[in-house]
Write a protein that binds this DNA or RNA. Sequence first.
DNA 1: CGATAAATTGAGCCCAATCAAGGCAAGTGG
DNA 2: CCACTTGCCTTGATTGGGCTCAATTTATCG
Lengths: 242, 242
Amino acid sequence: MDALRKDIHNSDLPIVCRSCEARHGGICGALTPEQLAELSRYTTRRTIEAGGELHGQGEPIHSYANILRGVVKLTKMLPDGRQQIVGLQFAPDFIGRPFSTESALSADAATAIEVCALPKAALDRMVNNAPDLERRLHNQTLVELDEARDWMLTLGRKTAREKVASFLYLIATHIDPSQAEVMDFELPLTRQDIGDFLGLTIETVSRQMTKLRQEKVIHVENNRSVTVHDLSRLAEIAGIDC
Amino acid sequence: MDALRKDIHNSDLPIVCRSCEARHGGICGALTPEQLAELSRYTTRRTIEAGGELHGQGEPIHSYANILRGVVKLTKMLPDGRQQIVGLQFAPDFIGRPFSTESALSADAATAIEVCALPKAALDRMVNNAPDLERRLHNQTLVELDEARDWMLTLGRKTAREKVASFLYLIATHIDPSQAEVMDFELPLTRQDIGDFLGLTIETVSRQMTKLRQEKVIHVENNRSVTVHDLSRLAEIAGIDC
DNA sequence: CGATAAATTGAGCCCAATCAAGGCAAGTGG
DNA sequence: CCACTTGCCTTGATTGGGCTCAATTTATCG
């Protein structure tokens, strides 16, 4: 890729960005070495363990973040404690809500994560002078909206069995986008989180997983390690047209 | 407002835009009279009766639209026919999915609507030269994402009673944003549509409406005309924190 | 007014929630 | 090394909220 070759010969590229996996993804891919240098003066890398909080629902937003490693869950909570995961984000996704000062949801580490945090003000300033940057942000927002609406169909109209299959399909295709028929992966979520994502209880999730296991659609080891034997079968059970 | 005064004295403003209610809302508010003139050479006004289709799921996208009047429902359908409304849009919202050539959902007129349709190519071209325009589109996308995620919480975690109350609250606050405690309005959706929006059957919607009526939370006339006696009570039932 | 669609109401059933018990693996302390 | 705790998951028994099927009432419109 052109941008990559350019970087290699460009000593202006900030040290922290040189070996960054997100350099060409997320929003950073839209930035010139000069802009990266500017931005990187304010960024800080943070490592957060599974279950840790990036920021909470209702809190003011002071910073954005790029996910470098791990999975982040976006959750919304009802006053009585019921909660719903409204989005999962993977590296190198951008986390944050431009043009808003307060978060309507909380962002938590589903797995151990590493992020590159940047002050809101720094990026907000830069967006006004870099059309490509706004384009990238706009585009990620559109993708997230598509995903949110896909999931609304799952939440509103699918059975527990279809929901669990949909979740497994989603994870399988996000962890390994190769679309191979046979694939195995680690679930980034606990049963409780899966329930919160699917609008189900942990018991129902567990029962449906057991059924899919008994029907040889999946193989499960140590609760978290899953093998899908036939991805198209899973998609069919999930009610995904392809 | 400054833009308004400017328009009045500017004969360059396209005739079709001069009396348009959406002139200062939606995306048009971001355009100069010159840009409006350019765009308006390609726009066409269309009136569509309730139930009519703007475009279907899976179809290629050739045009965008601004809603001038009425309510549009965005729906997604499973292969077996189950369907879910994933968004409601009101005037002067913009309808369309930039950066994509195929629609992942269908857009239908919930009520009789009037729209200002514009060819996709014309707007796509203009977006590259008008940062304000992309900003507006980006912003509307962010708002729609917020709304979609709010609704995911409703779909995944609320009871039928809370869902119906949430729907009534949503409509009440969108039709009349004054936040008055007492308000009345016409429902823009049939019971079937409400069911498709809430992930419920029409029978369940009907029963919950009847209950709310018996409890004097709402008053219903001719099936469609609703009076809310106490908006904060409705919000409380809906599980909305305020 | 009659025809047709839309909404309500009732009876029974089923899927997922609830309540409860137990298994399994990893960690802790004697 | 073993007893004990803790977190996470599974499984079973029971309940109940919302779905299904069916009948009736109400609204709409020619």
